[in-house]
Design a binder for these strands. Structure first.
Lengths: 345, 345
DNA sequence: ATGAAAGCGCTAACAT
DNA sequence: ATGTTAGCGCTTTCAT
């Protein structure tokens, strides 16, 4: 009463048996090995086709110790910055024969830990990561290093770790935006920032503060608000700011999303943007150019960052470990001036 | 001159040797096997920790024939619809112990073929896919079936294939939008559609046509334009429409992106929206609620679709093949009325 | 409660 | 140009 094993997948042994050769020959024929005859190759490929043979990557990976997998861990895939970086990585990776395994943490620390463990256990050949907003302890990434898996951080990086990092010059970006706001005549420039243990938010705040100081502005701590940088937070905190006895005439937000929230609030209350309040964000999310008014923001060259990371990864993999020196690369971002800060007079 | 093998990864054999037990015992101890003593388990786990042991999923997968991988293929990950579906899949999948392997095709047919092959070869336990805009020949998906890998399509599906499909009722969505435009007083309703070999665009067009007929509208083929549904296409074709001798007073676009393009053009030329032209899209992309005017569109319940797909997948996997009957599920979408169609009088 | 042994499917060094 | 053989790291049946 046994059901015939119709479900069993074809292996190279099945092909070998049919052709009266050995598995090695089949294996070699499939990889176009130079000293397998043309006829054998054809026979093998035809038989493979006929039997619907599907090579088993798992077996091959186990044998060769190579998985050809590049793991990428990002907070979320629907942010333009991250999806562009991923697209940039993919282009280079596919070209070089790697698969890209995309993992999103949804900014959840536990999920980040799980993804990292899973990538190590799946023998990913390298891990590219941007930290969650919650990540303080990076011991899970230390394990990656210990396992001799190349690790590259970008954007939200673990500064304590001795690995390659690709960063946007957040300080310079923030400085440029702030200086631009000063130039168009803003006198009371507020700032939304994220948690200070994240490098990007810390650096953007520093850029903001330094630009103000450089231009002899007095720092008003009431104008600096830390929140989760969501649209909702932008709305609420913009309201808080506008209800101050001395409300600001500009807001520089560390995120386009909270900048958008600010705009939504200001429009609802019929403030003029710019005029009464100028608004600037950070990241050049697609929507910043679509809404009215367009939001002044910072372009981070995300796709090029992705290309660069992937190239760096391939370089690191193909360099002997002891000869590879981790490097920090800083990309200079660009100011995109749009209607939200065209003039504040 | 030999470099000591410091790079070699710890295996269960190393742990076994250290503890004077066998690999079987270590393997069992790690999986909390009932008849391994508490002490042995503790010793094994401690030693594993000490030697920085990382289980090799590849070896384990090869042995058990299970990869625990759910492959998801979508055109692009930065569309809200797809990223929400993915998030919905992830929630259920992780809960059930599966990893989700996200693949994006960028609407490129060759990439779709590669992803499919790669998922088969990596022994993914199931594939969930939404086709590229270019896909006509689905023989690569036939191979998935032949390899006995459960396959589920959603949104852009291969109708010819006998597998489970989850669809939004595009017809009903389009019908609702069109009827809504009629109700607010539009007399000349134009339509942007995508390629007719894609089910969703065909169904949306049918819904549009049927609603018009139902209300005794004469169909004007000049008002129906097929394009790639991008922002750019929306701009250009809106211009074409407005330059007709008898321009439309409403546009229903099969995509939010081309609806946005239409709005950008209309705003630039100072048409009143609505008033002169009402605009509606499809998909409820986030930006539709953010721009001014908000765009009337169709919400597809994307996250729930993801949850549902993942559950269906798990059901299919855990059902004997001969007992599983593929089913088609149709989700009813919802009309979201926003400022762009509030009234056209 | 633990050990011995076989094998998942593939590759590659070493034959011939 | 092809065959032989061993083994990647793990699981699991059968044995004790």
């Amino acid at each position: 009463m046994d059901i015939p094993e119709v479900n069993k997948k074809t292996t190279i042994h099945d092909i070998a048996k049919m052709l009266n050769v050995t598995a090695s020959t089949v294996s070699r024929a499939m990889k176009d090995h130079p000293r397998i005859s043309k006829e054998t190759k054809k026979a093998v490929n035809d038989m493979a086709e006929k039997l619907n043979y599907q090579p088993n990557f798992i077996a091959s990976n186990l044998r060769t110790g190579k998985s050809n997998i590049m793991g990428v861990i990002v907070p979320r895939i629907n942010r333009d910055f991250f999806s562009n970086v991923i697209a940039g990585i993919e282009d280079v990776a596919y070209e070089a024969g790697y698969s890209v395994l995309i993992c999103q943490t949804h900014d959840n620390y536990e999920r980040e830990k799980k993804h990292v463990a899973s990538l190590i256990n799946s023998r990913a050949e390298g891990i590219i990561a941007s930290l969650t907003i919650e990540t303080k302890d990076v011991s899970h990434f230390e394990k990656v290093k210990k396992s001799n898996i190349p690790l590259i951080f970008f954007d939200r990086v673990a500064e304590s770790m001795d690995v390659s990092k690709i960063l946007v010059d957040d300080y310079a970006g923030a400085y440029k935006v702030t200086e631009h706001l000063i130039k168009i005549g803003c006198k009371k420039i507020a700032h939304f920032c994220g948690p200070m243990f994240i490098n990007v938010y810390r650096d953007r705040k520093r850029g903001y503060l330094d630009a103000l100081e450089k231009h002899n502005f007095k720092i008003d701590t009431n104008y600096i608000i830390q929140n989760d940088l969501s649209i909702e937070a932008g709305k609420q905190d913009m309201e808080r700011l506008m209800l101050l006895p001395n409300p600001p005439d500009a807001i520089f937000s560390s995120s386009d999303y909270s900048a958008l929230g600010a705009i939504l609030y200001l429009k609802e209350k019929n403030y003029k943007i710019p005029g009464q309040v100028a608004v600037a964000g950070f990241s050049n999310e697609k929507f910043t150019s679509l809404i009215d008014p367009g939001i002044t923001t910072i372009e981070q060259h995300s796709k090029q960052i992705g290309n660069y990371i992937a190239k760096l990864f391939i370089e690191e993999i193909s360099t002997k470990k002891e000869n590879f020196i981790p490097r920090k690369t800083i990309i200079t971002p660009e100011l995109c001036i749009r209607a939200s800060t065209l003039d504040n007079l």
